[in-house]
Computed example of a mutant assay.
Amino acid sequence: MDVLINLFVALHIIGIAALLGGFLFQTKALRTGGARMLPGMLHGAITMLVTGVCLVGLHQADGNEVNNLKIGVKLAVLVVILGLVYVKRDEAKVPSPVMGTVGLLTVLNIFIATLWT
Rank of each mutant, 00 (worst) to 15 (best):
L55A: 07
G40W: 04
L11W: 05
L82S: 05
A113M: 07
R89P: 01
C54M: 14
T101G: 10
V50Y: 05
I71E: 12
G44A: 05
C54T: 13
K74D: 09
V56D: 03
W116D: 03
G40I: 08
G33F: 08
Q26S: 04
V66I: 11
A113G: 08
G103N: 04
L55V: 06
R89S: 00
D2N: 15
V94C: 11
V87L: 12
N6P: 00
R36N: 11
D2A: 13
L115C: 11
H43C: 10
V66C: 06
I13A: 10
G21W: 00
L104I: 14
V56T: 10
G21Q: 02
H59F: 12
T117A: 13
T51P: 04
L104K: 04
V102I: 15
N109L: 03
A113L: 06
P97V: 03
L11I: 11
L84F: 07
L20Q: 01
I110R: 01
E65K: 14
M99G: 06
T114K: 09
K93Y: 09
G52L: 01
K93E: 15
L55C: 09
V53P: 00
M48Y: 01
F111W: 11
L115H: 10
R31V: 13
G103A: 08
M41T: 03
M41P: 00
P39L: 06
S96N: 09
L108W: 07
A113K: 01
T106L: 05
L75T: 15
F8P: 10
N6M: 13
M1P: 09
A92R: 05
Q60F: 09
R36E: 09
C54L: 15
K93P: 04
K74H: 10
L115P: 10
A113D: 09
A17F: 04
I71V: 15
C54E: 10
V9I: 14
L104A: 15
F23M: 02
V107A: 12
M41D: 00
V73D: 00
N6D: 13
G63P: 00
N64H: 15
F23A: 04
I13L: 15
L42Y: 06
V79P: 07
V53K: 08
K93A: 15
V87W: 13
G15R: 08
H12T: 07
I14H: 07
I112A: 04
A113W: 07
C54P: 03
T114W: 12
H43M: 12
G63N: 07
H43W: 14
D62G: 11
D90Q: 14
Q26V: 05
T47L: 15
N6Y: 13
M37V: 15
C54Q: 11
L69R: 10
K74R: 13
